[in-house]
Simulated assay, not measured.
Amino acid sequence: MTTTPDYGPSPAQIARMRAKIADGIVVRRKRTRTRRGVLIGTSILTVGALVTGAAILATLPEAHSFSCYPADDLASMPQKVSYPLDLEPTAAVSEQVEWALELCALIRPEFQMPEPADPVVCRLPNLWLGVFPNELGRTQNEVCADLGLLEPEDTVPGFENPSG
């Protein structure tokens, strides 16, 4: 019985296998590049949306909210008050101060906060207005300075009012 030796694949078969392997490598590389491009694009869009949202939110609180404090102390528990939804907050600081004083006067009885004789308004670090009762009857300059806050009329570096 004679057996023929096995010489392996023919040169033509080897060429077909190489071409098939090379085609598979090209497809996988292309798929990897496409996935990587989609991932990078999605990441850039997400970061852009987050930065834009943060920039918008950073300017909103000053124009739409303020805090009423029960004591001349930043550690006291303030009540956050928002402007009524049907009213457009004014861009004029003096009118914002008037609104803050009036609305705080309205909510003080609701939260059992004492009615101050001469409340003062200071600019909080988050750019909101803070209404303080001024328990010692000092000037606005003194109260704001003692609390380490700016006065409402002071310009805030880098702040742009969203109302224009």
Rank of each mutant, 00 (worst) to 15 (best):
Ala92Asn: 14
Thr59Phe: 00
Ala75Trp: 03
Cys68Ile: 14
Ala54Arg: 03
Ser67Phe: 09
Ser43Phe: 01
Ala49Phe: 02
Thr59Ala: 00
Arg36His: 04
Val93Gln: 08
Arg35Gln: 12
Ala75Lys: 07
Val97Leu: 06
Thr34Gln: 14
Ile44Tyr: 00
Val47Gly: 14
Ile56Met: 00
Thr46Ala: 08
Thr34Cys: 07
Ile44Met: 11
Gly48Arg: 03
Cys68Gly: 10
Asp73Ala: 06
Gly53Ile: 02
Val47His: 06
Met77Cys: 12
Arg33Thr: 09
Gly41Pro: 04
Arg29Phe: 04
Gln79Phe: 08
Met77Arg: 15
Ser82Asn: 14
Thr42Met: 08
Glu88Cys: 12
Lys30Ser: 10
Ala55Trp: 01
Gly48Thr: 12
Gly53Phe: 08
Arg35Phe: 10
Leu50Gly: 09
Pro78Ser: 08
Val47Arg: 09
Val38Pro: 11
Leu39Met: 10
Val97Asn: 01
Ala71Asn: 01
Leu74Met: 10
Ile44Asp: 00
Ala58Asp: 03
Arg36Ile: 06
Ala49Lys: 05
Leu57Pro: 08
Pro89Met: 09
Pro61Leu: 01
Gly41Asp: 10
Ser94Leu: 15
His64Gln: 11
Phe66Lys: 04
Glu98Asn: 12
Gln96Asp: 13
His64Tyr: 13
Glu95Ser: 15
Asp86Asn: 09
Gly48Ser: 05
Gln79Pro: 13
Glu98Pro: 10
Pro61Ser: 00
Ser82Thr: 13
Glu62Pro: 15
Thr59Pro: 01
Pro84Asp: 07
Arg29Cys: 11
Ala92Leu: 07
Ala58Phe: 05
Val51Arg: 09
Tyr69Asn: 06
Glu98Lys: 13
Glu62Tyr: 05
Lys80Trp: 08
Ser43Cys: 08
Asp73Ile: 05
Thr59Met: 01
Thr52Asp: 09
Ser94Lys: 12
Pro78Cys: 01
Ser43Pro: 06
Ala58Gln: 06
Glu98Tyr: 13
Leu74Gly: 10
Ser82Tyr: 03
Lys30Met: 11
Arg35Lys: 03
Ile56Cys: 00
Gln79Cys: 05
Ala54Ser: 04
Asp73Arg: 02
Pro89Thr: 05
Ser76Asn: 05
Phe66Trp: 11
Leu57Asn: 00
Arg29Gln: 07
Arg33His: 10
Asp86Cys: 00
Pro61Tyr: 13
Leu39Ile: 15
Lys30Cys: 14
Ser76Pro: 13
Pro84Lys: 09
Ala63Arg: 03
Pro70Ala: 04
Ser82Leu: 01
Ile56Phe: 00
Glu62Ile: 01
Arg29Ile: 13
Arg36Phe: 04
Asp86Leu: 02
Val97Trp: 06
